[in-house]
C-alpha cells in the first residue's frame, strides 16, 4: 500500500494543487469509506480488528482486488468487462481438468491463465475490430465462457489438493497471506503501467477522447484489445487463487465477483465514461466491499442482507461522486 501511494505522490504535481482537484477526493473516497466502516464495525464488535479476522479479510479480498484491477483497465477505456467472472470460472475449470489429467501445478496454472487470456483477447478483437459495443460482446462472452466451463467439466467440480496451492492460500508473511501479497504486486505493477508507461497514457487517452487519440496517431483498436487481454489474464490469475481457496475447480457462476469487481471500480472513483482512473481507488474499493460483508457477518446479520447492503453502498458512492462534480 505504501508503495503505491509514494509512487503516486512523487509523480504528481504538488499537494496543494492536488487537494483542489475533485478527482483527488474521488480517488480517496474508497479509503475514507473503508476507514469509517472499520471504525463502526470495531466499535460494534471488537473482534473485527483482531489479527485473525484482518488476515482472513485480506485473503478474501485478494481475488477481488485482482479482478478489480483488470476491470479498471477496461473501464478506463470506457468499456466494461461483464465476462470477467465467467472467464475466471473457465480458467478454474481448465486448471482443474489439466490438474486432474496429471499435468502438474505449473502446466495447469499456465493453461488457466492462457485460456482466460484467450477469452479476453477474443473480447478485445471483437470490440475493437468488429466495432461492437463492449457491453454486448462481454455479455456474450459471459454466457459463452460459462457454457464452455460447463462443457469442459461436464458440470462436475474437480477436487484439487496440492500442497503448494494449499500453502499459497493458507500461509503468508505475518497477517498478509500469499494470495494477498500477489494481489498487492498486481496492483503495484498495474499502477506503474497506468501512470508510468506510454501504454498507460495512451489507454487513458483512448478512454477520454478516442477521436483525439486517433488524431495523434494512437491505435485505439490495439489499446482496446490490450485491455481486454489484460483483464482476461488477470481473471486467469484469479482462477488459480480461487481453486486454491476452495480446494476445487467448480463450474460455478461466480456472479458476485462480476458485480463486486465493477462495484469496487465505481467505489474507487474511476469514471465509467473512461479516461480517468486510478488503481489505488479500486484497490481500497475492493477492501471496502470485503470489510462490509465481513463486518455484517460478524454482527450476525443474515447473509440475505449482504447483497442489499453492497448495492446500497455502491449506489450511495456513485451519488456522492456525482455531487462532487
Amino acid at each position: 500500500m505504501t508503495n503505491t501511494t509514494t509512487l503516486r505522490a512523487s509523480g504528481g504535481p504538488n499537494w496543494s494543487h492536488r487537494l483542489k482537484d475533485a478527482g483527488f477526493w474521488a480517488e480517496w473516497a474508497a479509503l475514507v469509506g473503508l476507514l469509517v466502516l472499520v471504525i463502526v464495525f470495531q466499535a460494534l464488535n471488537p473482534t473485527f480488528l483482531s489479527p485473525g479476522n484482518i488476515a482472513s479479510m485480506l485473503v478474501a479480498a485478494a481475488i477481488l482486488v485482482i479482478l478489480a484491477v483488470g476491470q479498471t483497465f477496461v473501464i478506463a477505456t470506457a468499456g466494461i468487462d461483464l465476462s470477467i467472472a465467467s472467464v475466471m470460472t473457465l480458467g478454474a475449470v481448465v486448471f482443474g481438468q489439466m490438474y486432474q489429467a496429471g499435468l502438474g501445478l505449473g502446466v495447469a496454472s499456465l493453461m488457466a491463465v492462457v485460456s482466460a487470456g484467450a477469452a479476453g483477447a477474443v473480447n478485445g478483437v471483437i470490440v475493437a475490430r468488429g466495432k461492437i459495443t463492449d457491453f454486448i460482446v462481454t455479455l456474450g462472452m459471459l454466457s459463452a465462457a460459462s457454457g464452455l466451463a460447463l462443457i469442459l467439466s461436464d458440470g462436475k467440480p474437480v477436487t484439487v489438493i496440492d500442497p503448494l496451492l494449499l500453502r499459497l492460500s493458507t500461509t503468508g508473511i505475518g497477517i498478509f497471506g500469499w494470495s494477498f501479497v500477489i494481489a498487492i504486486v498486481v496492483a503495484v505493477v498495474a499502477h506503474v503501467v497506468l501512470f508510468h508507461t506510454r501504454f498507460g497514457t495512451h489507454l487513458l487517452a483512448t478512454g477520454g477522447s478516442p477521436e483525439s487519440a486517433t488524431a495523434m496517431g494512437i491505435s485505439t483498436a490495439r489499446i482496446k484489445i490490450a485491455v481486454y487481454l489484460i483483464s482476461g489474464l488477470l481473471a486467469g490469475l484469479g482462477a488459480i487463487l480461487l481453486v486454491g481457496r476452495i480446494g476445487a475447480a467448480e463450474p460455478a457462476a461466480n456472479t458476485a465477483f462480476l458485480l463486486n469487481s465493477v462495484a469496487a471500480v465505481v467505489l474507487g472513483g474511476v469514471s465509467l465514461f473512461g479516461g480517468r482512473g486510478t488503481i489505488v481507488g479500486p484497490f481500497f474499493g475492493a477492501l471496502l466491499l470485503i470489510a462490509l460483508v465481513n463486518g455484517l457477518t460478524l454482527l450476525g446479520v443474515s447473509q440475505f442482507y449482504q447483497p442489499l447492503a453492497v448495492g446500497i453502498v455502491v449506489v450511495l458512492a456513485a451519488l456522492l461522486m456525482r455531487f462532487q462534480k
Binding site: 487513458l204 488524431a215 469514471s271 479516461g275
Partner: peptide, 11 residues
C-alpha cells in the same frame, strides 16, 4: 484540428 484533438482528462 478544429476540435483541437486534446484529451480533457489528461494534463
Amino acid at each position: 484540428h478544429q476540435n483541437l484533438a486534446l484529451v480533457e482528462d489528461l494534463t
